[in-house]
Design a protein around this nucleic acid. Structure first.
Length: 106
DNA sequence: GCGTTGACCCGAG
DNA sequence: TCTCGGGCCAACG
């Protein structure tokens, strides 16, 4: 089922600016409820200069995934802030406000 | 081709 | 409320 990647990438690409989605949500919307982990795998495999807004994909509690909890995270956080998403230095954000409904309301 | 790892999530103790 | 463990499946060695 290599189509899983396609589904995930497509959904991530549809996330509007200033909105974020959780791994579980992406996986669920893609049609694979329990495969949030593979979502992370897919994103992890993405090239450095990709157009995909993988940065808008966060954990369930509303925390940025990021790589090494360090510099990589700051890069993602800064990028999100540039899009209008309020993110703390710890990578935490308000899901209630920025959670993507799944609708392309860009 | 097999074993291990992993940007996670959820239920149970 | 917090911690621990199981489970899902793809990428990597």
């Amino acid at each position: 089922m290599s189509g899983f990647r396609e589904a995930v990438l497509s959904l991530v690409a549809l996330i509007p600016r200033g909105r974020v989605a959780t791994y579980g949500q992406i996986a669920l919307m893609a049609g694979f409820p329990r495969r949030a982990r593979q979502v992370g795998m897919v994103l992890r495999c993405l090239p450095t200069g990709t157009e995909l807004p993988w940065q808008r994909v966060v954990k369930t509690p509303g925390q940025v995934a990021a790589w090494g909890q360090g510099l990589g995270a700051l890069m993602q956080i800064d990028r999100l802030r540039a899009e209008g998403v309020e993110v703390s230095d710890s990578g935490e954000l308000d899901l209630e406000r920025f959670r993507w409904n799944g609708e392309v309301t860009a």
